[in-house]
Design a protein around this nucleic acid. Structure first.
Lengths: 336, 336
DNA sequence: CTGAAAGCGCTAACAG
DNA sequence: CTGTTAGCGCTTTCAG
């Protein structure tokens, strides 16, 4: 812990704690002279105020919590960058929590936030999180929570999302326009509204274009690469195998490509593939991958900006609102 | 902030604060009965102790700081996972700070850590960080710092690294064994010891195999994708262009592939490429990419484990030591 | 413009 | 086994 504190400064300067405190915070009550002396000594002694003492007194932590399922995903890492950029600007600190899609962990983290550890929360829920329940309880409490990307429906707060339905509709239509007759949708959870929205977009587009969706064309993948690989292989080995594939999350890309390779299926000749992904390497895959790219950085940044609005205004109530930042379809060889 | 505090509990139970406090921490001094009552009420009222009050009193934050240049890099995201896994186990919280290779930011963050905000620091330095100076000052202070991957030489603390020299030597030898006669090394900073170690491994291997390294075969890339792209194109457009390329960091992969594509150069026929990278998609690139894969998760985990050892032992002294976790060469088409 | 005093919520020493 | 007391380092009235 810091060795030099405000008392040390006060003593050395023959001033009172409170004067020093005010000087450090550049209060109008303090003379220029005094301020200067205080600042100089503080610098000289490498004084840094104890944030926890200050938090305790002011009931403000200057810290936000970020709760996400995963970091090794270019959407989330992009969002973190967006969040961090505004947190830094505001002088806030960022606590990060990974849930690994585990609802119990998520609950534990949220419970801890009841302690005043953070002034606000940015959250993208796990795939196991039900729409109601504990999360709702926490959010309805005194601490502002803003959701981004993976939101929970029916919560009275702001949610930053992308146009999941529309972009998925567009992706599906794109596949169809390229000649696909049977398209499979690789889901990852029934709970996640974004994944369901994407699924609905897919289904609607199929319907609109008179393409049949069979029940087993929607496949729920897991969190494990190997079993997803096996799963995808299964789908592509069926008699009436799909000629189009929509992967609802980035991490499904590798299993899909590997499965095709192993089965000797050519992308895009045998199967066309499109993926919800922000991978920088999409453009150098073999073949290059058509993606729906989400505005990760912007979503993180927007979510943080709104959160800080709520934090800074006293008595600010986060309205139930949706902010939609559109994704964009980037066409490449995998659907050509 | 939390509304119910330890006083509320004490009053409702007709006990003293200290009894309640001890009961909550499961002290041997307290009777089972009392503990049970306390725990029950705490649960019922959703009591969560204020961490900052506790920190203030105990001079312990139960928080560590992680300072890294970047999240959107599979090495760092992997390392974060390793770090987070042990922090969670220890009941610690993780503050994350991104420096974006900016030394000034790094200094500011380190200075803030003088406040007692964190009990320890895990750090991978920016590419601008000089070997001596402010970082050294902070580290020599009272708070334990463990470096991982991007370390600073000559600091009296633990450093978790991978075998940069050897793996780079191996990579270079691999290229040579595949017939490369002229190999370029794409660097990213003269300051970073890991990058220099890798360079030395490259140079030594060239020397040992009687391959000439010209001065302009070592190319310092920047932090910007587009200018790196231009730079790589430049190298590959030279009269005597290299037939082998070693990219010292992951983010150089895309520029390299794009440059080859644009110049109509075939990987691996015209140029063989090997990259220090943890990209999951290496195996599905076009062509698949030979990589040197660093043990990101393990390095993060090890660094955190050592840090906690220092934090938990009173009178810790982190010895100056290097822990080396080897990388591994994963051979794929780009060098075939 | 400066200072004295109270207290944020918790823990730890010390009594009982 | 339980309670009293005294702070941790800071900010904030309120008085001068």
């Amino acid at each position: 812990m810091s060795s030099v504190n405000i008392n040390d400064l006060a003593k050395q300067l023959h001033l009172s704690k409170s004067t020093v405190s005010k000087a450090l915070r550049d209060s109008y009550e303090i003379s220029q002279e005094t301020k200067k002396k205080v600042l100089e000594l503080a610098q000289q002694l490498h004084y840094v105020p104890n944030p926890y003492a200050s938090s305790l007194r002011r009931k403000k932590s200057n810290t936000i919590g970020v709760v996400i399922p995963e970091v090794a995903d270019s959407f989330f890492s992009g969002a973190i960058k967006g969040i961090e950029s505004v947190a830094r600007e505001k002088g806030y600190h960022v606590l990060i929590y990974l849930t690994y899609e585990n609802y119990e962990r998520e609950k534990a983290i949220l419970k801890d936030f009841g302690s005043g550890r953070v002034d606000g929360v940015l959250m993208s829920v796990s795939s196991e999180t039900p729409d109601a329940g504990d999360v709702k309880d926490t959010v309805d409490k005194k601490i502002p929570v803003v959701f981004f990307d993976r939101v929970v429906e029916g919560m009275n707060t702001a949610k930053i999302i992308t146009n999941d339905f529309e972009s998925s509709y567009e992706a599906t239509s794109h596949l169809i326009s390229r000649g696909c007759k049977r398209i499979a949708y690789l889901s990852i959870s029934k709970h996640l509204t974004i994944i369901n929205k994407r699924m609905e977009g897919y289904q609607k587009s199929c319907l609109d274009h008179n393409i049949k969706c069979f029940d087993d064309d929607v496949v729920e993948c897991s969190n494990d690469n190997e079993s997803n690989f096996a799963l995808v292989k299964g789908i592509l080995s069926k008699k009436k195998r799909p000629d189009g594939l929509i992967a609802s999350v980035e991490k499904l890309t590798t299993p899909v490509y590997r499965a095709c390779k192993e089965l000797g299926l050519s992308i895009p000749n045998d199967v066309k593939v499109i993926c919800f992904s922000n991978l920088d390497t999409a453009s150098i895959l073999s073949p290059t991958l058509t993606t729906i790219r989400q505005p990760a950085f912007e979503m993180g940044k927007t979510a943080a900006t709104i959160l800080f609005k709520a934090i800074e205004k006293r008595n600010f109530q986060l309205k139930k609102e949706y902010i939609i930042i559109p994704s964009c379809l980037e066409e490449r060889e995998s659907t050509s």
